[in-house]
Nucleic acid binder design. Structure first.
Lengths: 151, 151
DNA sequence: CGCAAATCCTACCACCGTGGTAGGATTAAG
DNA sequence: CTTAATCCTACCACGGTGGTAGGATTTGCG
């Protein structure tokens, strides 16, 4: 599994907040209830989003969270990257400039690099706005036969 | 991480055997030494490949393994699927006909389904032959700007 | 026939990431 | 000054990952 609940729930929170854009600060309790997720667990996840600059928060009564930017200014890749740490499908891929010691002679590396590219390209092309608008063409394909089959 | 060492080493073994196609049966000890991997660990992985019909084996002295088909008749998806069990990037995606209970109302599901498609399409289009021939265009892109960027 | 070289099979295990829970400290509105 | 909210630190069970160990079985060859 490439994306754990941490990344999935983070995206769920971001989509929830994107839907409520303009409603001011939304409390974590509200989000957790709406999405039917553990508030305590969500707390640790939303903390990552907040520290990563994805959100604005307000403490105290009437406090909560809201998006720091417009929904179409977030791409999915950056949200998942922040929460998951990496989106690499294998751990033998170059990260932070450090590559596998066998990289020069490894015959399977180009495959993993290509897979990594495909994933990154897909996720970085989709925004929160696409998700709340249900942009099926962009999400599920038909616009590129080689990327996403038409069946 | 989507693909563990199990899947990676399985592919390494398959590529190794594809390179030696026509040389008869190749012993596990030879493969392990050539690829610099633990023979004991490789044993458990090659056993999955063998039982899954990917290989032919011969026991006893002068025994070993060889490919059951031609290198261009294996796509990478089936090799990884056999060893990893699933290639789904998240565990909330439909598997064996069973889908998440929240599927009907989940706003993020189309994203995960789209990601799954992109991955599956990439991996099922590449064969062992492509890897041993170092088919960079197919592996790393340039043939589809939306799938794999040109940088 | 018997040895050696190979696959095949079962069991075991340490480590770490996942998916949380618990409890309290701090802040701000009214 | 109470209440509702974020913020922070610590803890923990479980299962998957990445192996290791030891032997049983099969087959080629001299």
């Amino acid at each position: 599994m490439m994306v754990s609940t941490k990344g999935r729930y983070a995206l769920t929170v971001m989509v929830d907040l994107a839907r409520l854009e303009g409603d001011g600060y939304v409390s974590l309790a509200d989000i957790a209830e709406r999405e039917n997720l553990s508030m305590k667990y969500l707390e640790s996840i939303i903390s990552i989003l907040n520290k990563g600059g994805m959100l604005q928060s307000l403490r105290g009564k009437k406090g909560g969270y809201r998006l720091a930017r417009k929904p179409d200014e977030y791409n999915i890749s950056e949200i998942l990257l922040l929460t998951e740490g990496t989106l690499a499908p294998v751990n033998c891929i170059m990260q932070d400039g450090v590559e596998c010691e066998k990289a020069a002679t490894c015959s399977t590396l180009p495959l993993w690099a290509g897979l990594d590219k495909v994933i990154e390209n897909y996720l970085s092309d989709i925004t929160l706005e696409d998700i709340i608008r249900g942009n099926r063409k962009k999400l599920l394909g038909d616009y590129c036969g080689t990327c996403v089959s038409a069946n």
